[in-house]
Design a protein around this nucleic acid. Structure first.
Lengths: 130, 130
DNA sequence: ATCATAATTCGAAATATGCAGAAATATCGT
DNA sequence: ACGATATTTCTGCATATTTCGAATTATGAT
């Protein structure tokens, strides 16, 4: 992982590193209707909730929820689509791929300037990855 | 996921949500020798690096690295073991399990007070999870 | 006992974050 | 055009975070 990849991944993790945002995501994943037309004939993207719907599942001001949704959008974790007066949010499943790659142990080129020390401390054994 | 589970997960994500900490983890995962004895006869836990070794792979003050290691330790992402003058750090693979569970879509009981609204906005279709 | 080294803790400065209320913007229905 | 509704943006404030250097603690070597 090069520097910008690390920073990109850190951004995703940071977006997930807040209980409110995590709850928003869970709400979107678990409470979104998977049909496009509800009983009032309203049309919405499949698997999405409006900002207000997300909001009423959480005890927080709408301005706060809106702020967190923006963070999630910037991190690429959700997508939004405006339909008339409502903005519908849905999870972007692709955004979780870098996390999976990280979990699966992406041990490529190694960070900045690896392990090169001039003084002190025992050198790691020569079998180390470098 | 109940409230405390969400908060626990958020803590882990928050710990991962910093480029420096991510680099530390990658250093530990990729640069730790897997043998216990190095060429100088020094003994260390398998798959570990001393704080100084971690530090010299990153352009940051040791006090900073120490601080981040503490955060990672609190989040359960790494373990540390003191041997003489050195403290050896290694990744705790179990800590990543909750993340995997999250990725695999743990859609249990749903957050706080789900989707119960009194006014406004189209109700989600009746097929929704509730 | 003294010294050098490894690491943590402390203190301070700069910056970022979470939150909510008020104002602004956009859209729909009448 | 007007009022109601959905959402964002702005503003202010309290709190948290990142970072470093200096002081401190712990250990091993001489």
């Amino acid at each position: 992982m090069n520097t910008s990849q690390v920073e990109q991944l850190a951004l995703i993790f940071k977006a997930l590193g807040d209980p409110t945002r995590l709850r928003i995501l869970q709400t979107l994943r678990c409470c979104s209707p998977d049909v496009e037309i509800d009983e009032e004939g309203q049309c919405r993207p499949a698997g999405s909730l409006s900002v207000g719907e997300v909001c009423c599942g959480l005890d927080q001001a709408m301005s706060t929820v809106s702020h967190h949704l923006k963070e999630l959008r910037i991190a690429g974790l959700i997508r939004t689509e405006k339909r008339g007066r409502w903005i519908y949010c849905s999870v972007n499943p692709e955004a979780l791929e870098p996390i999976q790659a990280f979990l699966d142990g992406d041990c490529s080129p190694v960070p900045e300037n690896a392990l090169v020390r001039e003084t002190a401390a025992p050198e790691p054994a020569s079998t180390s990855v470098r």
